[in-house]
Write a protein that binds this DNA or RNA. Sequence first.
RNA 1: GCAGAGGUGACGGAGCGGUCAAACGUACCAGACUGUAAAUCUGGCGGCGAGAGUCUACGGGGGUUCGAAUCCCUCCCUCUGCA
Length: 386
Amino acid sequence: MINFEENDRSLREGKIETAHGDLNFPVFMPDATYGTISNMSFKDLEETGIKAIVTNTLHLEQKIGSEKIAKLGGFHKLTGWDKPVLTDSGGFQVFSLIARRPNVKNKITDAGCSFVDYESGQYKFLSPETSQQIQAKIGSDIRVVLDEPVLENASLTDIKRSVERTTDWAKRSKKMFLELNNLSEDDFNNPKVKRPLLTAVVQGGSNFEYRKISLEALVEVGFDIYGLGGLPLQLKRTWDYSHEGGFYKELLQFLAESMPKDKLRYALGVGTPDNLKFAISVGWDLFDTVLPTRNARHGYIYVKKEIGDKEYDDYSVLHLSNSRYEYDEGPLDSSCDCHTCKTTSRAYLRYLLKIGEGSGFRLASIHNLHFYSQFMEKIVRENQNV
RNA sequence: GCAGAGGUGACGGAGCGGUCAAACGUACCAGACUGUAAAUCUGGCGGCGAGAGUCUACGGGGGUUCGAAUCCCUCCCUCUGCA
């Protein structure tokens, strides 16, 4: 059972005020990387109970351009989504693509990240400043500073440099943020001045000492939200959870305990429902991950305990691609009241996913996001009953 | 009827004397996925066997050869030109 008081959530007032409504936390935000939750409409999304989304600076800049978004009245007006939007800085994406294709043009320096767009061939440069400028044009409610993650096998030297660079970039990001919003440092610290929120990202790889150094340096600069830059990236497109979540949990707990009590904590890229539950229990407030939507497309469906193929503490997972569902006329989860479960059989959805039909991706995504949404509510409800 | 091309595993399609139970796709089966360059990626995919292995296989039949999906003969079938 989670005790919110223990985590001093009261000091954080239980909600975030944004220009697009208040956001209660803990909150899970799915990733609308390209400005859309793949295959879903924002109406669909709203019906799943999702309250906010994360979209990506880099992808939006590459695909549509922040200039165009600004001309079209900003992200909210463009898309019709009138709830809170968080823009990720693009740091993680640039880092990941540069790490996979390092060369003279693809590199990260103190100035920022330079790389060649493999689709357009265009040379791009993303700096702490440009990332903020793009996010301002997008008009997001919560913004993130550009940071530099490290690879899984990062040496202590790499980790140290990443922490130093991330701190420096955070300072530059904040400076640009203040400038873009015509704010002084005092304005920034004045709760009466309404403005977007700014998130810093703690780096330090798998080294707890550097994680703490990173956090303290960022707190020194002063932000609204402190984020956990996810686990070190592996080049094989996977994350190392070989510790059965052990290391991960230790890191989440360690950092949460070191955080200022009155500041929001955002665990970037977290995660599986069980990871989410744990992260919330140790005091994290904001979450995002691609899992429910990507997994939905792959027929990996979250359902109640004991009706799926693989069991977890509070739920099970059903592999819809499994041939045993070929003639299954029942809903994904009979206890679920999402649009998909009310209208579609396992057999039909399995078929739609098999032929790669967008409507199948949509229906599966609706269910998984509804599951995430309900899962979060359940955690909050359980806590309130304490 | 004459001339030409061809018949390969569920399908498409390589191979053209040995290293072939047969490349590569697709389909199928299973698995992975955590700030989405994931509609992606990995593995399996003739039978039996845990395995080494073994049996049956490249239209049918018969040859040549130490050895044939690959060469020869013959039959059957398909496609394309000409009648």
